[in-house]
Structures are given as C-alpha cells and as structure tokens.
Design a protein around this nucleic acid. Structure first.
Lengths: 151, 151
DNA sequence: CTATCTGCAAACCGTTTGCAGCGTT
DNA sequence: AACGCTGCAAACGGTTTGCAGATAG
C-alpha cells in the first residue's frame, strides 16, 4: 500500500467529482489515507489540528461525509456505540478491531454468501447487509497499558 | 416461549436483586418480555405510555439499564448507529434483524470459535467480542411498505 | 468574479444527572 | 417511617445546520 500515491488518487477523485481541493481537505485526506487505524471525528480533528491549527470540527465531519460518499473511507461501529472511519478496503472485508487504539486488521473470513442465502430462504427476509467483526486488544495495547500512538 | 411466565420470572429476579416492583417497571417488563422485536428507548416509551400515560423517558432508560444488567435483555446495534433492546437469548446467538420494524430472528450460525481462535493466533490480538449479524427486511415489511406493527 | 468552502455559533437529538415529591417495602 | 423510585428540568456529548467571510477555480 503506497500512502502518498493514495493521497494523490483521493485528491484526484475529490476534484474530478466536482469538489474543490482545499487545505483542510488535503490535511484530512492525508490523515485518513495514511492511517492503519480507524479514527473517530474528534481524533481526526485533534490530529489534523497538529499540522493545521485552524481546522474546524465541522469541516472534519463534512469532509469525512464526502470521503465516505466517494467510497474512500467506510464507517465502522464499535461495541460501545461509537463510530470510527477507516480507509475503505477492496471489496467487502471482515474486520478485527482493537477497541483501545482503533487498529484494524482484515482477516480471511469465511465466505458468508452460503449462510445469508440459506437464512434468507429459511426466513423470507431480504438480507442486504451483514457484519462479521471481531473486537479485542491488539498486541501493542496489551503490552503498554497506555494510550494509542500516532497513526 | 411463555410470555406471562417470563414476566413473572423477570419481576421475581428484579425483586430478589433488591429492586422494587413499581408500576412503570411492570409496564416495561411486560413490553420487553412480550416482544419479538428489538425496541429502542423511544419505542418503549411510546408503547409504554399507551397503557401507562405518566411514564417518563428517564424511567425507561433506567429500567432498560437494570434489565440489561440482570441479563434479561441485550443491546443490539443497527447499521444506522442506533441501538435497540431485545429479550436476551439463551447463550450467545447470532441475529437476523429487520431494519424496518426491528423484528429479530436467530439463526443457526456457524460456530465462530475456530475462526476467532485462528485469527487470534495469527494476529496476537486478544479477542473478546464478536458480531455476526444479518440485516434486512422481514417478509411483512416487504409486502406492506408501511410502518411497524405493535410488538 | 463566482460559487464553493470554512469556521464560528447555535440548534439539535439521544442520553445522563440533579432533585423534590411519591410510593413500595 | 425510610428509602428507593419517579418524572420533570436541565446538563451533556456527539452531530448537524445557518450564516458571513475567505478561497479555489
């Protein structure tokens, strides 16, 4: 995964979708494209302000919304009810998420199509979404019982 | 599943856990023990007020909290980020949830222990929770494109 | 030059807390 | 009679909206 190439690709897509390339947007794109972690709006805000002091929280929300709409990031739900945003993966993936620092790994999940097909046939439900997610603590957070490190 | 027996059982457990049996609590217990659907706090509030006009939303929250603490109901997360509460099932179950009316079915899910074991070994994560949930539209909601019916 | 974007303030929604009076035990 | 419980009002945290000025195109 080449982060700086991704940044260019994301900025390109933003622009070709009719959005303007502004300083705050560049900052947020760099953060999201470069992070292995799922970040919440406030984290993006704080990390963003480190390099771009004037950044506003509203801009963070609006930019994340656009990036999600363009399929560049996706929203993940945590057990405590919060959301974070994550670089989108190629195709549908299943996640393993560290509930402490937000580190995300994908894993070779079982293919759920047979399961959803069977359940759909059994119940008459139209199934249009499924979640297979694992939550835990990553090796790093298990050793240092401290705070998450930079992305 | 015998609903009125469940109500008695739930009230018993509440009382033997040191909580008082009050009119609002009885109302909420009857609702939750009798529903096949996952209900959000506001729905419990509205349905509860139908038979108990003075019921307050705060009481709903506090009672749901106690019922969850006693293991009688559990919280489920929906794709839109909202929560609803659901009669607890016996043991860990996987859900199929109607995103329109909240109807819940459990399904014979694959046993995920081998998967979590393997992923844990591969990644070094301590895995302490997993979600395998399917979301869709139940047969009823597919035909009537209307609102959810009473529980 | 124009339309979009930004950041502030304020509104908003779901949830939690403080508190005086009520009701269970 | 004592204490827990209720319901109102107000606080709260995360998110959204309105708007005047700044900025990309």
């Amino acid at each position: 995964m080449n982060t700086s190439l991704d940044v260019l690709r994301w900025l390109d897509l933003l622009q070709s979708s009719g959005y303007r390339l502004t300083t705050p947007r560049r900052a947020i794109v760099e953060l999201m494209a470069g992070s292995q972690r799922a970040l919440g709006p406030i984290e993006v805000f704080d990390l963003g302000r480190a390099g771009h002091p004037g950044l506003g929280l509203v801009t963070v929300y609006r930019t994340l919304e656009k990036l999600e709409e363009l399929g560049l990031i996706e929203r993940v739900h945590l057990p405590d009810g919060c959301h974070r945003y994550l670089r989108a993966t190629h195709g549908h993936q299943h996640f393993l998420l560290c509930t402490t620092c937000g580190l995300v790994q994908t894993f070779a999940g079982d293919n759920l199509d047979p399961l959803t097909g069977r359940v759909s046939a059994d119940t008459g439900f139209a199934i249009n979404e499924h979640w297979l997610q694992l939550y835990g603590t990553c090796p790093d957070c298990r050793s240092h019982i401290t705070n998450p490190s930079e992305p």
